[in-house]
Amino acid sequence: MFRVVLSDARAWRRLLDAISTLVEEATFDVKPEGMYLRAMDPSHVAMVDFEYEKDAFQEFECTEASKICVGLGEMLKLLKRVGSGETLEISLDREANRLVMKLTGRYTRRFALPLLQPSTSELPTPRLAFDARVKLDADHLRDAILEVSNVSDQVRFIAGQDKLSLIGESETGKVEIDFERDNPSVYEFNVQGEVKALYGVGFLEDMVKAGSDNSKLVSVEFSTDKPVKLDYELPPKGRLTYYLAPRIE
């Protein structure tokens, strides 16, 4: 038995958007404690980790753990015209092997879409230690990455004792953005030594856009020439985490 109700269908669509930046098919782990998803893009460069606990839903019924795999493109297409204040109910029709979505608000809409074969491989949590951890405004991080994308397809993260800098440089110009330790929009600042790494803007752009759509705060964690972790809290009880591998120089 599986049935959940989300009070804000739009927020759910934004979350699906965030996941669809990396994968076309999503395998959700539904458990009595909540809904989880971990997916890696086919080229093994980026990963998304999504947790939405029971309490984050308006109603949550799940009697046994199972896996639900759906095509995100199709699901998003159906949710395209979701209005504000509409509620979304998701349940399963095991017999027809379908996922059923019911939207209520302006009027009632019912959608069914086929369940796909879930992937069986379990992805491990990347075991990473981070030398830099900076918590800041999600919008600010998004804007910074977008500024860099104007001039370059890669961005250098440099964290020192008193600031985190994002630098993009190419023949077309240079963009340098500093988040000072004492800036009011920087909420946490924890850096050991000098930490530097280079990341591709393509993935980052999608991640920070989707992240800032869903959350106000982001914690950026990375180590020299190691993957970066972008952690977005989804109030009240959820989390969206991205990992991105560094560029080789």
Binding site: S43, V45, G200, G202, Y243, A245, P246, R247, I248
Partner: peptide
């Protein structure tokens, strides 16, 4: 989409290379 964004990045799986 599949390769273009990842030909310069290391692998998250932490292997020696790609």
């Amino acid at each position: 989409r599949f390769l273009g964004r990842s030909v310069k990045e290391a692998s998250l799986l932490g292997t020696r290379g790609k």
